[in-house]
Each structure stands twice: as C-alpha cells, then as structure tokens.
C-alpha cells in the first residue's frame, strides 16, 4: 500500500490515544454467574480447545471430542441444560472468562497460584505429568544433561516454565517455544530439536510415526492438576462444580474417561 506522505506523526499519536481510550473505557458492572442463572438461561457456555489431544480434539466425524469435551458434556447433562461450546486458544482461556464469553473453562487448565489471582479453580478432575522426551540415543537423566541441546516446548505451558527456569541455572540449554504440541512433535521428527518437554502422552503420539519408536521418556518434570476455571465472583457455581467433580471421582467416571482417552488410570487426585 502506498503510504500517505502527508500524514504526520501527530495524527497517528492522536489515533493511538483514541483507540486506547475506547479499549480502556471504564469496566462494566460485575456479572456474577450462579447455577440458577445458567439454568434460567437454558444453556451453559463452556470454553474448550480442540487442538489439545487427547483432552480436546476433533473425532473422525470432525466433531469435538476428548476427555475435556466429554466432561463438559457431563456438566451440561447434570445441570439439565444444553452445552454451548466456545472454542478458545490456550492464551485466550482467561480472557474468555473475564470478558464473560464463557461460564467456565474446561481445557487442560493447570491449577497455579498465578492464574488463581485472576480466576478461580475447581478441585482437580485430572492430572498430567510434564516430561522430557528425546531419542533413545541421547543420554538424558536430568536437566544437567540438556546443556548444549535444543529443547522444544509449547509456549506458556508448565514445561516451558520449568525448563526455562532450568535453562537459567544451566548455561547452554536452548529453549525453543512453539505454539502447539503438534509443532514440537514435528520439530522432533524433523530433527530441529534434540529433546522436548510435553505431556506424558508420548506413546500415543510419537510412536505413531515411523521414526517415533526411537523416542523415550527421559525424566518427569512435574505433575500438574487440571481444574475447571470460573470467574472469581462466582463462588456458588464453583461450589457446585467441586461437588460435581467429587461425585465423578466417587462413581469412577473420571477413571473411565482417563482410560478411554489417555489409556492410563488417573493417579489419586488431591482436594484443596
């Protein structure tokens, strides 16, 4: 596009201020959500992500499927209302709640204190270990052995935090941050990275490709617990979700979902 050469920097600055004023206008009144609100609205809106298999993905009929999706559907069933899915990306989860676009987020939402400053978490419904995977020929037993290697992670995940912290202490670890798990896996298969941090579902994934048999779990970084996210101002809804998760733990539903999608049973889930 041809630039306008008459435009002055001043005009632009004025425009910027204008744009910012619009976006930063005073926040609206609170909209706390209760169980009754959802029931009277006749639907529950749940934020999901269909690019996070085996928790959220699309099935052979190109419909949303996975551990998180089925859990979300169970929530709607228990509340007696249909579920309206809102697809979000990983960084869009907190904004989706804060802007009231979704009543809750069910999308591999690891419970962390930092996130809990902005939103509230239910008790965990699943857990997942973050691990380091690499080809068998590479000798890795701990973070020290990663020195001199390129390590791929998904941006902003627990693995990213832990391995970035390790890289600060141990010089020579090069962290490459990708947008999704598929990209890191592809980077591994292309030989662009020497090791990767990811969820402990390497078997389901990497073994699928011809070269994938070559990869193995090197060590466990940390175990994360997934909770359902709601707005901070909705304690009643949060209490109902905690109760619901408790019942799913008791009747074995969560274990069934874990076996169905993750092929491994769930470890004991703590309560806070």
């Amino acid at each position: 596009m041809r630039q306008s050469h008459r435009r002055t920097v001043l005009h632009g600055a004025a425009a910027l201020v204008l744009g910012l004023l619009v976006t930063s206008a005073m926040p609206r009144a609170a909209d706390a959500t209760t169980v009754d609100d959802i029931v009277s609205a006749g639907k529950v809106t749940i934020a999901i992500d269909t690019t996070t298999p085996p928790y959220g993905m699309i099935d052979n009929d190109m419909q949303p499927s996975g551990f998180d999706i089925e859990l979300a559907q169970l929530i709607g069933k228990a509340m007696g209302v249909p579920v309206e899915f809102v697809t979000v990306t990983s960084p869009g989860r907190i904004p989706a709640l804060l802007t009231g676009r979704a009543d809750m987020v069910v999308s591999i939402f690891s419970i962390t204190a930092e996130r809990a400053l902005q939103i509230a978490f239910s008790i965990p419904y699943a857990s997942q270990s973050s691990v380091v995977l690499a080809p068998k020929s590479v000798n890795i037993k701990s973070a020290k052995d990663l020195a001199g290697l390129k390590v791929g992670v998904t941006r902003g995940t627990g693995e990213d935090g832990l391995l970035t912290a390790a890289a600060k202490d141990i010089p020579g670890i090069e962290i490459l941050r990708f947008d999704d798990y598929a990209s890191i896996s592809q980077a591994m298969l292309s030989g662009q990275i020497d090791a990767m941090g990811g969820g402990d579902y390497g078997d389901i994934y990497l073994k699928k490709s011809a070269k994938g048999d070559d990869f193995e779990l090197k060590y466990i970084l940390k175990t994360f617990y997934f909770g359902i996210g709601v707005r901070k101002d909705s304690p009643e809804l949060l209490q109902w979700l905690n109760t619901f998760i408790f019942t799913l733990r008791q009747d074995g539903t969560l274990d069934r979902l874990s076996m169905k999608y993750r092929k491994v049973p769930l470890p004991p889930l703590p309560t806070f």
Partner: peptide, 15 residues
C-alpha cells in the same frame, strides 16, 4: 482489541 477489549465498553461479540 475488538474481541477482548470491547468487553470494557460492555460489548461481547462472538468470534
């Protein structure tokens, strides 16, 4: 800004 930012002026557009 349009998708998330408009929440601050009371709008909530779908994607």
């Amino acid at each position: 800004m349009v998708y998330y930012g408009t929440a601050f002026i009371g709008l909530r557009p779908d994607p």
